[in-house]
């Protein structure tokens, strides 16, 4: 008889692999990608393509350069690229989009040791960096800014322009007249970043992730519920609040990132409540209209502590 393998149990494995999970996330992002092209035109597809391709390229290049095993096949870099693109306006200059991918993959992920080792969500952090560095092009939703964006990139952006619903809510008063209808907010017929505008498309992706058991319900549902309740308490229209800005995108796809969020049920509850609280407070009192990415980053930083606080007591375990 030829040589047999002798190794410890278990001898069979089940469940999805890392790349299968990431593939499911990409599939779940697809409806929002289609919606972004429908709403903002082909420029949206271009931005998604540039972000994704550059994210994968930077991961591949860095690992090649450092003679590490190349991990682009796990598709996590592709997921980061698509989510980053979803956080950018359609008119973003392409070099800025690619720079965002470099920040996400190289600075936030690879310098900390690659997949599984980063403490901050790469796409969220890159969005914040771009937002602070290029505030003009990152907020070029308003009609007057579109011409500026066109001048930079030479491309034209069709579709929706104008103030984002959150900017309108921030201004308040007479500006509220310009608030899109709830149906338009739900479908995505309003100004905003590529992937954040259509709540419908994002919810389809959410349903897919739940069915595939990639994520559990608690983070997105509690996050959105807390924003709903607090917005109402602050006197804002709660339905508008949950349908506008990056909340749905953040709650479904960014606050559920495995690596940078808590691992247990109660940990995720704390994370979601904290993120919902900071999002609303920033929206209401902050200088910026939107607070989703800041609050997710803040909760990312707290995640190791949340994990330590919420170590579950094993069945039959005695107090240590």
């Amino acid at each position: 008889m030829k040589h047999l393998i002798v190794s410890p149990a278990p001898h069979i494995r089940g469940g999805a692999s890392t790349s299968e999970i990431m593939r499911d996330v990409l599939i779940a992002l697809l409806p929002a990608a289609v919606a972004s092209v429908v709403i903002f035109g082909w420029r949206a597809a271009l931005v998604i393509a540039v972000c994704t391709a550059s994210a994968v390229f930077f991961e591949w290049g860095y690992e090649k350069l450092l003679k590490r095993s190349v991990t682009v096949k796990d598709l996590s870099a592709a997921v980061t690229g698509v989510i980053l693109a979803f956080n950018l306006p359609a008119s973003i200059p392409l070099w800025q989009a690619a720079l965002g991918s470099a920040v996400a993959v190289l600075l936030v992920k690879q310098l900390f040791g690659g997949i599984g080792k980063n403490f901050a969500n790469p796409a969220v952090t890159a969005r914040i960096v771009l937002f602070l560095a290029f505030s003009r092009t990152m907020t070029a939703f308003a009609s007057d800014a579109v011409t500026g964006a066109t001048a930079v990139t030479g491309a034209t952006v069709d579709g929706i322009t104008g103030a984002t619903p959150l900017a309108i809510a921030k201004l308040g008063g007479a500006a509220l007249e310009g608030m899109p209808s709830k149906l338009d907010l739900f479908l995505g017929n309003h100004a905003g970043c590529l992937g954040e505008v259509s709540a419908l498309a994002l919810l389809i992706g959410f349903a897919y992730l739940l069915i595939r058991r990639v994520i559990s319900w608690e983070t997105p549902v509690i996050y959105v519920a807390v924003v709903f309740a607090l917005s109402a308490a602050f006197g804002r229209d709660p339905v508008d609040a949950i349908l506008s800005g990056g909340l749905m995108l953040g709650a479904i796809f960014m606050a559920t990132d495995y690596v940078t969020t808590p691992m247990t049920f109660w940990g995720r509850v704390i994370f979601a409540v904290g993120a919902g609280f900071f999002t609303t407070v920033i929206r209401v009192y902050g200088s910026y209209p939107e607070g989703v990415s800041f609050s997710i980053l803040l909760m990312n930083i707290l995640t190791p502590y949340i994990n330590r606080l919420t170590v579950p007591k094993p069945l039959g375990g005695l107090k240590a």
Binding site: I5, T18, I115, G116, Y258, M263
Partner: peptide, 11 residues
């Protein structure tokens, strides 16, 4: 045995 990769902290 499948090739192990980095932990993604999925829980």
């Amino acid at each position: 045995a499948p090739e192990p990769s980095a932990c993604i902290r999925c829980g």
